[in-house]
């Protein structure tokens, strides 16, 4: 009986809990990084995800950026038609869910990591640039953060270096590179 209680708790905690903790949301558009970054379009990350001269990173580009190429459908994909009809033509912004969005109190300077330390995008964001379609976006019901911050594994153990974007990940990397930072270097 003790054993079955144990098993029950373990099952509920490891299997059921993450399913209750996270809520799934779908992205507004099935955007394919593979098509854009692949041979066909041959774009680099920095073409859309711009780091400006003031050192500000502009994350996901606005609809205006999409419209530079997609003012009218280039191909015959259903998603592209949706982009043009629902967003580009009425010039409406896409309500993207950002997997890597940190809370307001965290400050991550892309300039220092990309321009100065020359860290490739994939080192933190994983092979997302080759994805065919966006993953399901999961949000923590308590904190409101993206699941990517904690990482896909509920135990918090990462099986790939880019999994998990909690503070300890930053701290570990900074420590290995001999950087000594204060809290307010990454908090605002």
């Amino acid at each position: 009986m003790f054993g079955s209680g144990l098993a029950l708790a373990l099952f509920a905690g490891w299997y059921g809990f993450p399913r209750i903790l996270y809520r799934s949301e779908t992205q507004p558009l099935q955007f394919s990084h593979a098509v854009h970054a692949g041979e066909k379009a041959g774009m680099a990350c920095g073409d859309c995800h711009v780091l400006d001269a003031a050192g500000r990173f502009h994350g996901i580009p606005g609809t205006a950026k999409c419209a530079e190429c997609h003012s009218a459908p280039l191909g015959d994909s259903k998603e592209e038609k949706m982009l043009v009809d629902d967003y580009v033509t009425p010039s409406k912004e896409l309500p993207w869910r950002v997997y890597s969005r940190q809370p307001d109190n965290a400050y991550f300077p892309h300039a220092a990591h990309v321009a100065l330390a020359k860290i490739p995008c994939a080192e933190c964001h994983g092979p997302y640039g080759q994805s065919e379609a966006p993953r399901v976006y999961e949000v923590n019901r308590i904190t409101g953060y993206s699941r990517d911050i904690w990482g896909p594994n509920i135990s918090g153990i990462a099986s790939h270096p880019w999994e998990g974007m909690k503070m300890d990940r930053c701290v570990t990397c900074h420590a290995t590179h001999g950087r000594r930072d204060g809290c307010i270097d990454c908090h605002k």
Partner: peptide
């Protein structure tokens, strides 16, 4: 059964993740 579950509970991520998430909740 309750005893087993109680022991098992501490070997699941539930208490620890909840502790973490509730404190993060207060930050945001």
């Amino acid at each position: 059964l309750v005893g087993g579950s109680a022991v098992g509970f501490f070997f699941t991520p539930v208490p620890w993740k909840l502790l973490d998430d509730t404190s993060i909740w207060t930050q945001n």
